[in-house]
Amino acid sequence: MSDVKMMTKDLTPYQDRTALIGVFTALSIVFGIAENFIGLPLPGLRLGLANIGIMLAITMLDFKAAFAVAFLKAIIVPLVTGNFIVKVSIGLPATLASTFLMLTYFKLCGRFITSVSMGALGGLVHITVQFFMAGILYIQSPAIYGLLPYFAAVSTACGIFTGYTALMINGYLKRSQ
């Protein structure tokens, strides 16, 4: 927070924080829409680029800001990409759960870790909760959990990638001040 304050001296900290929430939310939404066009070997799986905005909010702002970004992203991205009810019912709990766990993880051991492992954790939790919600609401057969290990492994790898991206963005932001 303090290093962010230096960037914009003409704004109060409150306005500053609100503006950053808006920037991170916009980043998440744009990535969330753009990643629909990036294919991965497993169907339905996406890179999780939208998580970058949430991770930046976690590392640079506070927990309320992180949840604001996560909630807005989980509502607005399905609104734009279509199939709203299905995507929100599966994606919103997954996004909130992964945000909550990433936040707890960062608050507890933020001194020892970077956002690389935080992204990996977020990816794993996100895909697990998605499978859980899909299993409860739509498919209702334990057979889908047979696919979970493959999806979880790819999702964790994607989480490392997005976590490293968030780390680099964070480094550039700090250096640019």
């Binding site: 051991c109 020892f112 870790i113 970077t114 690389v116 492992s117 990996a120 954790l121 794993l124 697990t128 959990y145 047979g146 979970l148 290990p149 979880a152 492994a153 964790t156 490392i160 490293y164 780390l167």
Partner: peptide, 20 residues
């Protein structure tokens, strides 16, 4: 990247096999 990151990532990949 810190050393704890790699430890956590390895643990997460191992947990993939048990998560089911």
């Amino acid at each position: 990247i810190k050393a704890a990151d790699i430890v956590v990532i390895v643990l997460l990949f191992i947990s993939v096999f048990f998560i089911k």
